[in-house]
């Protein structure tokens, strides 16, 4: 049995998440990954913005920082540069990270600041009651898209790759064990690592779109996910409507706080 009690703040339960919510699955995957990567609780700073996913820090026993909507990555950047020995983990949602926080997201990826960013992508604003997000699929309903969304949606992982992230992976709450392996790789990567976790929101996403229960959504992930290695051999037509999971991108780049420490080493004590 995995020692979750070592990491959880049990006195903060019950949590605020709905029955069937996927946030807890991602949380547990994150804890397994942290255990596996042997990073001490004292050296982890878990930073979040605003939203359902962003309530994660309250339940776990690290240095935890629940910031303003969309700004978690910017707070985390300051924390990392001021104390480079901290291991930064950011938990965020699709709205938090790619709508209001989109600017910080792409710039932290561009700078390649060492942090592991886990985005719980449930395609909806859950905390505020089911409004459309940048990842609500075209045609899907939300409280602010009552006739179906007419906006094309963001590919969060694709955005991170284009912006310069070192490591980008995607999985789903059905593939919980794969999720913790991917988060582990993200934690061990020196640089900006993004893990996109597709997360069921039975209350505000499944219901207006008639997608059934949380179990139905997990089943949908199971039936419609394709390993990236297999997807690469498929035509664009065959990939349409599928979720491509696994390590999408893994590269070596100079990391920002390391570069800054080199600059300090070179310049420290020198006169004007």
């Amino acid at each position: 049995m995995f020692p979750y009690e070592h990491y959880l703040r049990y006195d903060k339960f019950p949590h605020i998440w709905c029955t069937g919510c996927g946030c807890g699955i991602v949380l547990k995957a994150m804890l397994r990954a942290i255990e596996r990567s042997k990073i001490s609780k004292n050296s982890i700073a878990l930073v979040s913005g605003i939203g359902c996913s962003s309530r994660t820090p309250g339940y776990v026993d690290f240095n935890t920082l629940h910031t303003t909507h969309g700004r978690a990555i910017a707070f985390a950047t300051g924390l990392k540069l001021a104390k480079p020995e901290l291991k930064i983990v950011v938990v965020s949602g699709d709205g938090d990270a790619t709508a209001i926080g989109g600017n910080h997201f792409i710039h932290a990826a561009r700078r390649n600041v060492d942090m592991t960013v886990i985005i719980y992508n449930n395609h909806i604003y859950g905390m505020t009651g089911g409004q459309a997000s940048p990842t609500t699929p075209l045609g899907n309903r939300a409280s602010t898209a009552p006739y179906g969304s007419i906006e094309p949606s963001f590919d969060i992982s694709g955005l991170a790759i284009a912006a310069g992230a070192s490591f980008v992976a995607r999985s789903t709450c059905y593939h919980a064990t794969q999720l913790d392996k991917l988060i582990t790789r993200g934690l061990l990567k020196r640089g900006f690592a993004l893990i996109e976790a597709l997360t069921p929101c039975p209350t505000y996403y499944a219901r207006p779109n008639r997608l059934g229960t949380s179990v139905d959504m997990l089943r949908w992930y199971k039936d419609n996910s394709i390993a990236v290695e297999r997807a690469r051999k498929m035509s664009e037509e065959e990939r349409r409507g599928k979720v491509i999971i696994g390590v999408l991108h893994d590269t070596e780049r100079t990391e920002f706080s390391d570069e800054y420490q080199k600059l300090i080493k070179k310049m420290k004590g020198k006169r004007r």
Binding site: V47, L65, A74, F75, G78, A82, K83, H104
Partner: peptide, 14 residues
């Protein structure tokens, strides 16, 4: 917005 966020993060680190 990010500047203000970053200085708060750094100050929390002491």
């Amino acid at each position: 917005i990010g500047s203000m966020a970053a200085i708060i993060g750094a100050s929390l680190a002491g």
